[in-house]
Write a protein that binds this DNA or RNA. Structure first.
Lengths: 233, 233
DNA sequence: CCGGATCTTGACACTTTCTTTATGATTTTT
DNA sequence: AAAAATCATAAAGAAAGTGTCAAGATCCGG
């Protein structure tokens, strides 16, 4: 077999060939590299050397108790374990989950649900990466931390200025009309009062634009509204 | 004080009072502080200010689609969400899990299984908080030992001051709004009374800041709240 | 019941922010 | 090119937010 170490490794622990074949068919073409083990001892050895990213475990193994397999796996690592079992008794589920399993699916189950639950446990085991941060040239807006930097410096924004910038960021590249912005930040009562918007745009530009009279980020769309520019390429 | 803000907070989102009462009974005496929401909009507002550690969500809400509630919650945070639903169709489960739910339990379910699955998702979400000691410049906060030092000296904090500092530490770098802090430490009844927060921030600064009038650790975000600064690089 | 620590509340000075007004600049229309 | 509309900036008073001190109120262990 050709190793493909880039794909996440999935270890299937089940003594019935029919189940393994079913899972192989179901997961074929998915992003996983599949490995099999037919009994508990083989599985533990495989988990130790293979270091899989996910384990699908049938509780009814010939040589070991399923719960003990989970416990022994947990001594090795925190690899996500999804239990597949014909047993539907609550006690079995609780025991497996308490022993360290991450999920418990009762056979028969749909392949789509299995795939969805696999995605859930992988999502949780992956370190968090995606922070919603807008970045363009010398301007960065970190919504999660409420931090804005321009030309490398932290910028202190007033609440309204920040609300305005956040609104622009959330629609980056698109034009927001005067009335849309006014309605969102000042409410419908200010629809006839566009001055307040201009003043705040001006203040915002003075803080985040290198040259406020020649804005590169907050673009005026004459007669329409404003737009946060997004650089090409 | 009625509130016990140290316990993990569990937000129950369900429009049926019978279910809420059942869950309250089932979870009574558990380690959780329970909060309720009866519709989607209330739930989203509560999640934003309450910062719960876990959410139990019924999909059949009167005012919003359950899947959308999950999506909107996910825009706010990565808080674990367990869906409780009468619908047993695979499509519903897959949609909920893909939208960001961590588990999906079909009613009726056993209370032991629910507790076990709660433990599972909490176990998985723990590593995020696995930083037991905060350290930045001349300030160190050791949560495990409840020890705070500044400029090399041990600092004696009152319970409220320590709770406040711990809350800031657990969200270091992020801005905590006034209402989030007030709800956390003083409970919802103090939402209209931000004064008590200012006094405690002031007292805390006097103890841990080298120059309390020029704070380097507890930063005021005007009009928004406070943030514990984390030095760059 | 007392003493000390802690929490809450009120008062006040201070700072920042918001809104409005005014005026000049720019763009579009006639 | 002139007129009209739109846009940008500065400045000032009003409003809201913030920090600090200090006086009661409350809680707790002896």
């Amino acid at each position: 077999m050709i190793e493909t170490p880039n794909r996440p490794r999935l270890l299937i622990i089940d003594d019935e060939q029919a189940i393994r074949r079913f899972l192989h068919t179901a997961l074929d073409g998915s992003e996983f590299a599949l490995y099999d083990a037919e009994d508990g001892h083989t599985a533990l050895a495989a988990a130790a050397t293979l270091l899989p990213d996910l384990i699908l475990l049938d509780l009814g193994l010939p040589d070991m108790d399923g719960i003990e397999v989970i416990s022994r796996l947990r001594e090795l690592s925190l690899v996500p374990i999804i239990v597949l079992s014909v047993r539907d008794r609550e006690g079995d589920k609780v025991a497996a989950l308490n022993a360290g399993a991450d999920d418990y699916l009762t056979k028969p189950f749909g392949i789509e649900e299995l795939l969805a639950r696999i995605r859930v446990v992988l999502r949780r085991s992956q370190p968090q990466v995606a922070e919603p941060v807008f970045s363009d040239e010398d301007l960065t807006v970190d919504i999660a931390h409420r931090r804005v930097t321009a030309q490398g410096n932290d910028i202190a924004l007033t609440p309204t200025e920040y609300d305005l910038l956040r609104l622009l960021v959330s629609h980056a590249g698109k034009v927001l009309t005067h009335s849309q912005i006014l309605k969102h930040i000042w409410g419908v009562t200010y629809l006839e009062q566009p001055h307040v918007l201009r003043v705040n745009i001006s203040n915002l530009r003075r803080k985040i634009e290198a040259n406020p009279s020649r804005p590169r980020h907050i673009i005026t769309e004459p007669g329409v509204g404003y737009r946060l520019r997004v650089s090409e390429t």
